[in-house]
């Protein structure tokens, strides 16, 4: 009989592919870094393979950069707003960071 690769017992908590990281973060608060200097913090309610996501109790932080015309100093402004329920289209997502897991 041909040698079979050992099938490991797949626990629910194992990470075999990157999306497992998100699967383990469902119903948890996550940090999402988006294109165009936006960050979101909210509870991950659902996602798919495109990284489309539904988040709830979301805090959105938008960072805008302005250059002072006289001193050429760069000024960063952060504006915050909260959204109770938010669908995010995956193509704008750069990074998703789950809460710190006890493992």
């Amino acid at each position: 009989m041909a040698e079979q690769p050992k099938k490991e017992v797949v626990l629910n908590a194992t990470i075999e592919e990157p999306l497992d990281l998100l699967r383990l973060s469902l119903e948890e608060r996550v940090h999402v870094k988006m294109r165009t200097d936006r960050e979101l913090r909210g509870k991950l309610r659902a996602f798919d393979q495109h990284l489309n996501m539904v988040l709830s109790e979301v805090e959105e932080i938008v960072t805008t950069r302005e250059t002072d015309e006289d001193t050429f100093e760069e000024i960063y402004r952060q504006t915050k707003r909260t959204v109770p329920m938010l669908f995010v289209r995956g193509d704008s997502v750069i990074l998703v960071s789950p809460p710190v897991r006890a493992s």
């Binding site: 592919e17 990157p18 497992d20 990281l21 940090h31 995956g90 960071s97």
Partner: peptide, 28 residues
């Protein structure tokens, strides 16, 4: 798509952020 552990974010060579785990969308 990438899963990283003990992630440090650097912009212009400066440490910006630390994440325990991080999922990075592959297109970036």
């Amino acid at each position: 798509n990438i899963a990283l552990e003990q992630t440090e974010e650097y912009s212009n060579g400066q440490l910006q952020n630390k994440y325990g785990d991080a999922f990075i969308r592959g297109n970036n």
